[in-house]
């Protein structure tokens, strides 16, 4: 199977200089905002019932990067989150585990220890998350710390300032450098902060920039700004990974993060995945939800499907 490295080689001409890279990114097809949003809205009207819904709920649970990214995070908080990731519903051991727990670098070791023996990965934000405003050596050190502490996945942020100023090559080289730091030890998720890139054209360009630079995943947002994951920006990124694989054979994952709070919304995102990128992406290896409160809503819906009656917040755990 082609690797991200082979994909990078395929774009060597494009990424050779600032001007070739700019020409390539600006030559990508434009995005009509209304048409994109209409398509996302129309897929949102799919009606997912009974067996399909049960499947979708378990799939969604298995795709969650259960996240805590607060200044107030403590080892106790992280351990509780880890326990929840391993046993999302203590009353029902058939519930799948979440894909990962997502924490700051200094909490990686705690999370790693708490998750020992489970398949749940530890993802760490890095590169001066969430603003990304630090020199490259600092970002690389941040990344190295997280990996050294046992992180399986790195969620880096791009330098939006450089991107918006048109310094695409700088952004590219930073991603490539972080990718090199990750090596074979951690999968790299590249966060664009789509709310700050502001336009769909920029999101498409950033998607290609990230994929060419070696991202294993492209991720919408930090959850720290006003607009985070939306059906439309996720649809657009799914189109990008679909087209990238068609062109290079390399499959890249997608992670919408922030703002997805309930089952209904999560299922809409899965419909987007199913009908845009296709069934190959319907797996936690290729699609993630960056979320925290979503999990409990999925669990309540799961209980409803099992028992036939509506559940309530007292019947799922609060951590």
């Amino acid at each position: 199977m082609p690797t991200t490295a082979s994909a990078a080689a395929a774009f060597a001409d494009v990424t050779a200089s600032e001007s070739t890279l700019r020409r390539f990114l600006h030559g990508l097809p434009g995005v009509d905002a209304v048409g994109l949003e209409a398509r996302a809205a129309s897929l949102g009207t799919r009606s997912i019932k009974t067996t399909a819904k049960a499947y979708a709920i378990d799939l969604a649970i298995s795709m969650i990067d259960l996240t805590t990214l607060e200044g107030a995070d403590t080892p106790g908080k992280v351990r509780a989150l880890a326990a929840k990731a391993v046993h999302p519903d203590p009353t029902d051991r058939t519930t799948p585990t979440t894909a990962a727990v997502c924490v700051y670098p200094d909490m990686v070791a705690t999370a790693k220890a708490a998750l020992a023996g489970s398949d749940v990965k530890v993802a760490s934000v890095a590169t001066a998350f969430p603003a990304g405003r630090a020199a490259l050596p600092v970002k690389l050190a941040d990344t190295a710390d997280a990996i050294a502490a046992g992180a399986d996945e790195i969620d880096m942020v791009i330098d939006r300032g450089a991107f918006l100023a048109g310094r695409y090559l700088e952004v590219f080289e930073q991603i490539a450098a972080v990718k090199a730091e990750c090596g074979d030890r951690a999968r790299l998720k590249v966060i664009f902060e789509t709310g700050e890139l502001s336009t769909y054209d920029n999101i498409r360009r950033a998607s290609w920039l990230g994929m060419m630079a070696g991202a294993d995943f492209i991720k919408t947002s930090t959850g720290k700004v006003a607009v985070n994951a939306t059906p439309a920006n996720t649809l657009l990124m799914l189109e990008a990974v679909r087209d990238f694989r068609a062109q290079t054979g390399v499959q890249i994952g997608v992670k919408p993060a922030g703002g997805i709070r309930n089952t209904k919304e999560a299922i809409k995102f899965l419909v987007l995945v199913n009908e845009t990128a296709g069934a190959d992406w319907l797996d936690s290896h290729w699609f993630r939800f960056g979320a925290s409160s979503l999990l409990n809503d999925l669990l309540m819906q799961r209980q409803k499907m099992a028992t036939g009656h509506y559940s309530g917040p007292d019947y799922v755990t609060v951590d």
Binding site: V34, E37, A40, S198, N202, T230, P231, A232
Partner: peptide, 13 residues
Amino acid sequence: HPTGSLGASGSSY
């Protein structure tokens, strides 16, 4: 012709 919003803020609908 579509108008839509200035940025990718979510949905024009």
